[in-house]
Design a protein around this nucleic acid. Structure first.
Lengths: 251, 251
DNA sequence: AAGTGGTCTAGACCACTGC
DNA sequence: CAGTGGTCTAGACCACTTA
């Protein structure tokens, strides 16, 4: 005691100094941080202490490590809007994909797609007011932008509506699933969306090529046709580095 | 070579076995995981290897460490709805706080509050179509549920509207800021909200008492009065363990 | 007082990157 | 091939919790 202040852990002190350099712009987006060896010498610490400091920054999402190369500054700069207007009738009604509604440059591309028909899993069953004996068409896909995977999505449509229609095919045709539902007289008129955030599972981390310190945003959406009949349920997992969601509503 | 498969890192193997026990329900919410010493003996590994396995689980949000006690399973179970309907006119129009619209039990409580008037920071200035020379009333607060902090929020209201009114006081009276804006003839009629997720800063982590592996959800909301005049801008930082956002909209 | 996780040291070997 | 981060070992001391 008597040392005049709080004892600061060495790795915290190192991390904080690097954090300041990032915050003030001395180090910015692609810049290389001092490596383990450099920090060991600069601060006279052991390897694991230097590593801990760098790990702190990575877990905060401020840095990414590239094996064999170095640790680099990563500033948060999400790219793509994911808004309610993407579901407006004008968009899919006109035979364009909902994604065309997005503002920025390159549109997401479906990168992998599987379509199956199977008994409804518990959550989709509940949201679609089905029993788990009822069957649903399941469309799982991954979206990428410029070769970077950004979203995993799984849509569930009751088999009674979708079986034998283009909805159960790989290619649903212009306007996508919603346009086909409209053709069948089940045009969605209302949506509810639930949104939360969490850390990815190792599998999601892999499929979306996420780096340490990158959470995902989970969106669960239910589409209702006239008479409040639920006709589609989707679960989406978005890379938080790729998306900002936007919503607009009246008082 | 010749070992017949992919080399699996020891800490990954340990983490995966624990993950499976969590996924299958052998270990659930408050359960204590095997500690560092136990894992060292069970797998014949060094302390740092056992630590790495436990750290992996913590960074995924599957476990929390309690110093001097152990590492415990944490399953994701958000508590509180944060939806668009909280902003409907019926809610604040009737002199109740927007939070009353939330469904579940104990309402969030303001736990610390500062009100100042100052030149508009860059982002609020842009959203309120002000210059950074213009002044704004800044209301910063922290909300807690049952003593657990869950949200940080900062609201910005143009000083030309708010100065000398209850909006610049600590206690804004029934219905809050929106009701007072309505009294002044600037009732919000439309809102836009932008939502994204990221890892917390060390300061946020502290103020919201977040454990490792808990992201935050950031919400930036702008309220518009008649004639699309922006009258309030709020930045909110929500603990992802406490909130599910919900939205409802028409095609 | 015993056990726990948190910090730290001082080594080692590996796979990968980039010149 | 030199340098990097990733994994791993085998110790040590500390602050904290629990009983």
């Amino acid at each position: 005691m008597g040392d005049g202040g709080v004892r600061q852990r060495k790795h915290e002190r190192i991390a904080e100094e690097l954090r300041v350099q990032i915050r003030t712009g001395q180090l910015t987006d692609g810049d290389r941080l001092p490596g383990e060896n450099a920090l060991m010498e600069m601060y006279g610490v052991a390897r694991m202490t230097a590593r801990q400091a760098l790990a702190d920054l990575q877990n905060e999402g401020l840095a990414v490590a590239r094996k064999g190369s170095g640790v680099y500054v990563r500033t948060f700069r999400p790219v793509r809007r994911f808004g309610a207007q993407r579901l407006s009738k004008e968009v899919w009604g006109a035979g364009r994909s909902v994604w065309d509604a997005d503002t920025s440059s390159a549109p997401p591309v479906v990168d992998s797609l599987t379509v199956t028909t199977e008994p409804a899993p518990e959550v989709p069953a509940r949201m679609l007011t089905l029993s788990t004996d009822d069957r649903v068409v399941v469309r799982s896909r991954r979206y990428s932008i410029n070769g970077e995977p950004v979203q995993l999505a799984t849509a569930y449509i009751p088999a009674v509506l979708a079986e034998g229609t283009p909805i159960a095919e790989e290619n649903t045709g212009p306007g996508g699933v919603f346009a086909r539902l409209a053709d069948l007289g089940h045009a969605p008129v209302r949506f509810t969306e639930e949104v939360y955030a969490r850390m990815p599972t190792p599998q999601e981390s892999d499929e979306l090529r996420l780096t340490t310190g990158t959470p995902v945003i989970c969106v669960a959406r239910t589409a209702f046709a006239a008479g409040d009949r639920p006709v589609e349920f989707s679960e989406m997992t978005l890379s938080s580095t790729a998306y900002v969601l936007s919503y607009d509503f009246q008082a």
